[in-house]
């Protein structure tokens, strides 16, 4: 077991969740309640990482974050160093790659709250902030938890994007998924098997946990 790689993966997943959670709540709620021109385009763009091969996404990120592009140069000045083949670049790539996993469950959860419930809250004299805090977030809670688990588990197992943007630098960009590949390449099947089993059990548990709380907290409206 490559503990360094596992710890790095957990750190990457944790940071991705931390950054994506507010983004997911704000964007998910916005998409759930607002109608605007070009909404389907925005949604399609945010869902692209679901269908795009990770290597393709990784390639574009590599090109756009790299020092040759304007964005890359801007980020380089901001961070003081290049963003490809290091941990910060990996976090940015991971955030982009996980957008649909964070936004979609939260969006669905907000959509499931009947409009009248939110209106009733306003008619009870609750300010929009209080409605969000007391009514919407508690009712969307299961969606938020599933966004967290899905994002975390998905980052833990991500391979293609990490390899393209981060490479395979121990302690910097070598995540557990890369380590498994690395071990297989080195004919160290035992280590690969342990790490694979760990990822399998972890992912299964995470998803089972999500289903469990979703089923338990089903609200019936009306």
């Amino acid at each position: 077991m490559d503990w360094e790689a596992l710890l790095l993966s957990i750190k990457l997943s944790g940071l991705t969740v931390l950054f994506l959670l507010p983004v997911g709540i704000v964007t998910g709620r916005w998409l759930a309640y607002r109608k605007f021109f070009g909404k389907s385009m925005v949604q399609a763009l945010l869902a692209v990482p679901l269908v795009l091969p990770p290597t393709v996404l990784g390639y574009y990120l590599l090109v756009s974050l790299g020092g040759a592009s304007a964005l890359g140069q801007l980020l380089e000045r901001l961070f003081g160093h290049g963003l490809v083949f290091n941990f910060e670049g990996l976090v940015i790539a991971s955030i982009i790659f996980n957008l649909p996993f964070a936004i979609q469950p939260i969006q669905r959860a907000f959509e499931a709250i009947p409009r009248e419930i939110r209106e009733a809250a306003a008619c009870c004299g609750m300010t929009p902030a209080r409605v969000l805090w007391r009514i919407e977030l508690p009712l969307a809670w299961t969606g938020i938890v599933s966004a967290i688990t899905m994002t975390f588990a998905h980052t833990l197992g991500e391979f293609g994007v990490v390899l393209m943007v981060g490479g395979n630098i121990p302690g910097e960009t070598k995540t557990i998924a890369i380590a498994i590949y690395d071990r297989v390449q080195a004919f160290d099947n035992d280590a690969a098997a342990v790490m694979s089993a760990f990822l399998l059990v972890f992912s299964m548990t995470a998803i089972a946990f999500t289903y469990l709380i979703t089923d338990r907290n089903k609200h019936t409206y009306g």
Binding site: P114, E116, I117, E119, A120, A121, A122, C123, C124, G125, M126, T127, P128, V131, I135, P138, L139, H219, T220, Y221, G222
Partner: peptide, 20 residues
């Protein structure tokens, strides 16, 4: 005036109780 600033009591057709 926004809804939450109006002193209204509204009973909805579906009642719209907070389920939680």
């Amino acid at each position: 005036l926004a809804a939450h600033r109006r002193a209204v009591g509204l009973v909805f057709q579906t009642y719209a109780l907070f389920p939680h």
